[in-house]
Design a protein around this nucleic acid. Structure first.
Lengths: 190, 190
DNA sequence: TTGACACCACTCCATGTGTAGTACTACGTT
DNA sequence: AACGTAGTACTACACATGGAGTGGTGTCAA
């Protein structure tokens, strides 16, 4: 088992691209090697087996989907009212949609997790933490709404992104924009 | 190309199970043959190639996820108020969750459709029709809410089902129940 | 009798895992 | 400066699996 951390990270990030492009079953050591442009056999040296590869990707993918520090800092600025909330949600949807392959890879991982208990455990932990962090962040932010509205928005926006990324002709960009606004507005009405 | 329609349907339904269990890349002629318990080579005779298989499954899957006539008829009974709306949505979520493999197969198809234009066209058409039908049905039903509330509910409940089927430990059954109620209630507030 | 379909067998091909072995590089030691 | 060593990159190979596609034979019903 090799230890070079940069190389390991490069392999995992390559695996994310492979996942998005080829699907879960297409995530093979060979494909990761090719994507990362390293000699064949390298991934074999960094991951004990495919299960291990999936688990490590599951641990990494969420980091890459989360906003960076600067983005978080920026989100705290300005009045924290409903209009600002909607603005933040537009940014969220755009940011995640932009990292296309990351989100698709996460979907593949979710589906794969129905077959891999270890992966499921990793994903469950990460996502549960993220939801809780969102609720806590929201509570401290001064934005309108309660914890239920946070969760409802999480649900709604997730599927909106799925729709946009998998069947882009279902909703126009205009409709997506309006749906985000409506989701924010209505989720706040307790 | 063989024509026996019962056999074709049996193969397609077998393909749905394979999709849910093995993922999109695992959907092979061989696997379908095995699942349908027919001799190897049979699926080759019924589908020109894998692309054709995917497309035909895409045309079928939605039929199986839709409610049957009896269920639709029952949904028209009683007062059409918000409490009834919530009740119907609980039934919807439970019905779709129950046909576990069908919903997972549809997710696999969505992801696969990023790679297969024909499949994407079929799915886009079906889903667009379904959303429009839901909006029309809702408008005629006397249930509260507008077309935006229908779409928002569609989004929210879809991801709720994803969450339940792929990472069942994120939300408890109790929480899911409450989220459905909250989604109905809040989506109605224009 | 004939035609459509079920069934079976076989060829060809592609892909992937896991591992053993070799080459390289950097670093510490004397 | 020369040497040794350890860790890693790289290469090659043995072995196994799985699947597509097709041609041919059997079977049954009209």
């Amino acid at each position: 088992m090799r230890r070079n951390p940069e190389r390991r990270l490069a392999l995992i990030d390559a695996a994310i691209e492979v996942l998005a492009r080829e699907g879960a079953r297409g995530l093979t050591f060979r494909a990761v090697d090719a994507e990362a442009a390293v000699p064949p056999g390298t991934a074999s040296n960094y991951f004990a087996n495919r299960d291990d590869l999936f688990t490590q990707v599951g641990g990494r993918i969420y980091e890459r989907l989360l906003p960076d520090e600067a983005t978080i800092a920026r989100s705290r600025e300005g009045v924290q009212d409903q209009a600002r909330y909607a603005e933040l949600m537009h940014e969220l949807v755009d940011r995640i949609s932009a990292f296309n392959s990351g989100y698709l890879a996460l979907l593949e991982l979710r589906l794969e997790s129905t077959r891999r208990p270890e992966l499921r455990a990793v994903l469950t932990k990460r996502i549960r933490e993220d939801i809780d962090a969102n609720i806590a962040y929201h509570a401290a932010s001064g934005l309108p709404g309660d914890s239920t509205s946070v969760v409802l928005l999480y649900l709604t926006l997730n599927w909106l992104i799925v729709e946009r990324l998998t069947l882009p002709d279902i909703f126009t960009e205009q409709e997506i924009h309006e749906l985000v606004d409506a989701a924010v507005r209505r989720s706040l009405n307790a």
